[in-house]
Write a protein that binds this DNA or RNA. Structure first.
Lengths: 195, 195
DNA sequence: GCAAATTAATGATTTATTCAAG
DNA sequence: CTTGAATAAATCATTAATTTGC
């Protein structure tokens, strides 16, 4: 809407290059600190926010996986077709095979390409998926405890609603029952109270 | 690990009550501003962060849907069984019905319970899913442009690493190819270049 | 009664899917 | 068609209920 800033982030070539380099280097899910640092660094090359970095890694990882999946499934298709061809070629007598095999794409397991750690000195200590199994065995998942919150809920140049977010005096909350469980009870009048 | 603070947020009864009231009132996906306000208000009753509010609504909504889905599917099962019974009762002669109907759970469409807006004065202008179709037709989804970023990447009492997050001087980025697409090229030697 | 063991709820993350801008 | 943005679904992990043997 605002003519000066486009509605979504458009990465500059340098930013993209750096992001891709870091991705190639093995970074997949940067934590908030890393995101901040990356954002700070990339902001030198153009306007950028933390959420852009966050989303970029999310999307890049997802689409990488998806690309891989697609390739693998295509491969599988070809393989299956060849098998089927051979089957039809060798056993052409049994018409009861369904002829429409369901193509199960490999759901998980295509995670890490395992490029063995390119030597760029982005040395914030992120853990590789491989080495994530050792170290502190008790807290396996502490590496991403952190989290994020950010906002730009309107254009940056909206001078209205400039009050400093005081704790409003509302919340009447005249609830009478603390634990009422029948939140969804007005929808299913079925008398089968097996639950 | 740290005995003083448990690793995850444990809502106090008041906090829970307020959250549930707001949920019952129709709030499903608060934006960042709302989350901040809610957090500010709820922090009066105990320790809480924005991400807790965010997660609470996410989870509550999802599990509500899931509960509904489960109820509906059970209902459907019973219904289908009755139908099947009737079919078997009235047409007991045709053995070619498959006898194993696939139970399609209703994937989407069970979104909003459409309680018609309870009158509690939490009047931050959030849009209902119903009225989300009108207003500014061009930007249908602007109502949640905002986003979040927050962090607590270690315990609050860790005095080490207290540097103020300067932009480090690393990022050598000796990338030679800007667009190299062959990130995943070493996996699929298949020769069918249909894409 | 009361801990250890199991199970159910639910807070927190990650992954998949969808929408829309360019 | 690519990809940034956003949401929904699935999953992981921890805390509370509860069961169970004593």
């Amino acid at each position: 809407m605002s003519p000066t800033g486009s509605s979504r982030w458009c990465p500059t070539p340098e930013q993209l290059m750096i992001l891709e380099e870091m991705y190639r280097g093995g970074l997949r899910t940067p934590n908030a600190t890393q995101i901040q640092q990356i954002t700070a660094h990339l902001s030198y090359y153009g306007k950028i926010e933390g959420k852009n970095v966050f989303y970029w890694f999310q999307n890049h990882k997802a689409r990488d996986r998806q690309k891989l999946r697609r390739k693998l499934s295509r491969q599988l298709m070809i393989q299956q077709q060849q098998q089927q061809f051979q089957q039809n070629h060798f056993l052409p007598q049994f018409p009861n095979c369904t002829t429409t095999p369901v193509w199960f794409l490999p759901q998980g397991g295509v995670e890490d390409v395992s490029r063995p750690m390119v030597s760029h000195s982005w040395n914030v200590d992120y853990h590789h998926p491989a080495e994530r199994c050792e170290a502190d065995k008790s807290t396996t998942r502490t590496y991403s405890r952190d989290w994020m919150m950010m906002m730009d809920h309107e254009g940056p140049t909206s001078p209205c609603c400039n009050r400093p977010l005081k704790t409003l005096e509302l919340f009447p909350i005249t609830a009478t029952s603390l634990k009422d469980e029948c939140t969804t009870s007005n929808h299913i009048p079925s008398s089968t109270s097996t639950n």
